[in-house]
Design a protein around this nucleic acid. Sequence first.
DNA 1: TGCTTGCCTGGAGTGCACTCCAAGTCTCTA
DNA 2: TAGAGACTTGGAGTGCACTCCAGGCAAGCA
Lengths: 145, 145
Amino acid sequence: MTETAAAAGVGDCASRTSVRPRPDGQDSYTIGEVAALTGLSAHTLRWYERIGLMSRVGRSHNGQRRYDNDDLRWLEFVGRLRLTGMPVADMVRYAELLREGDHTFAARQELLVRHREEVRRHIAELRATLAVLDFKIEIYGGSAR
Amino acid sequence: MTETAAAAGVGDCASRTSVRPRPDGQDSYTIGEVAALTGLSAHTLRWYERIGLMSRVGRSHNGQRRYDNDDLRWLEFVGRLRLTGMPVADMVRYAELLREGDHTFAARQELLVRHREEVRRHIAELRATLAVLDFKIEIYGGSAR
DNA sequence: TGCTTGCCTGGAGTGCACTCCAAGTCTCTA
DNA sequence: TAGAGACTTGGAGTGCACTCCAGGCAAGCA
């Protein structure tokens, strides 16, 4: 269980760690460091690569993964999409389009536009529920007193 | 597959159906009608009852479920909580507290207050991502042209 | 009378997104 | 030189929230 300890220790705040992004050129991170930086587990990072959500990560002379700042930026974006509920399959599709090159601009844009609509719809739902919660909580406040 | 056909036919708009809420006193709905009204499948409605997310629903003389307007209102609230990401286990906990009676006011209020915080946090995340999406989509617009 | 439709039950199956395991390699420190 | 610790792999396991299945019952209609 040693491997996941780093990520687990980070808890809900991924930046509370000694690992900091390094300047481009000297940017080389082990999977454990990336886990600490992103809050993802090393398991999940390998799985992301396996399913094509990340293009193949660079390797050290002995086969260990070495992530760079571009990888970190990509993981941050992926994290955003994930937090806003985009299915992993859609994120993989987006990653594939990116790898395919410039002629997929339109398709990528469409994918993001569709997701933006989803996010907007979701915000509206959350707002409506917030109103319901406010109402109920107020009732409880009044009754408890 | 006859059973789920009603719910499936409803699609994304649960109100596009001939079943309408009836006045209190004449409110008695079969599981199929409730499925059409709520957009949940009959399977899910039975499962909700089994796990205690609904208190035991009334029965007809031959053992079939008969839902009333209170059940419908509860299902609507549950649907809101579900859409805002509350785990089913928490919703079950809330339902249990409700059944336990008035002395659980404070606990119920606390549960809702905590969820409200979650929802607020989530809205903030979605807003931040919306900004990122706007930026990326604009880039694609410029590059594609 | 037979057929269809809608419902009942407990338990098994599904899809998603991880999460862990076993067995091994490599590097570093005591 | 031994041991610890971080890493490697493919494949199996987990938890959640449903979703379906098999076998059966009851009511309405031709």
